[in-house]
Amino acid sequence: MKKREEVYKELKKKYTDEELADSYIFSVESSKEEQQEIREEFLKLRFERLKSMSDEELISLDLFAFKLRLKKYFETDKYDNAFSFSSQLKKYLKITRRSNADVARNLGIHKTKLSRLINQRESPNIDLMYRLETHSSKEIPAFYWWRIFSKELEFKIKTDHEKMLHEANKVENPLKLSA
């Protein structure tokens, strides 16, 4: 097999640089010594960049990473307890770098209500989801929060056999359908 440089030279004969950039993105091969030099130079700049990131920038990027994780979760059919409404709300609160009391105030709800939502003692409503959308500067749409909650709810409906039986006992004369 040919080395990268040889392949590149061959491709250059056939394609313009624009066409190449459109079809190939590749790192060049270099000696170990050169690699080390490049890496050291890079690392200095990389860590300077990390240090220079503002809180606002970090929140924005953390929020986007959070959104990507949610999108990936929505692609799966299964419910994952790590993605319960309460656990994702906790993650969101952490990303904001604000206290729970501050976020509760921002959302126009009592801090006890927020605490109850976090501890799964209360279910969220659509009003809260719209408020969370606005709070995230629209990065996390209200329907994302709805999807998180609806997946959890669907799982509960399917698996809460005790409740299923309890409610079934209250029903009289159910429809009799032949198969």
Partner: peptide, 21 residues
Amino acid sequence: FNRGYYGFLSLQPKTELIDLY
């Protein structure tokens, strides 16, 4: 992004393609 690097993707390019990238 998923690995916590804020989307950081590096490349060691050919000099003549830097402007295009």
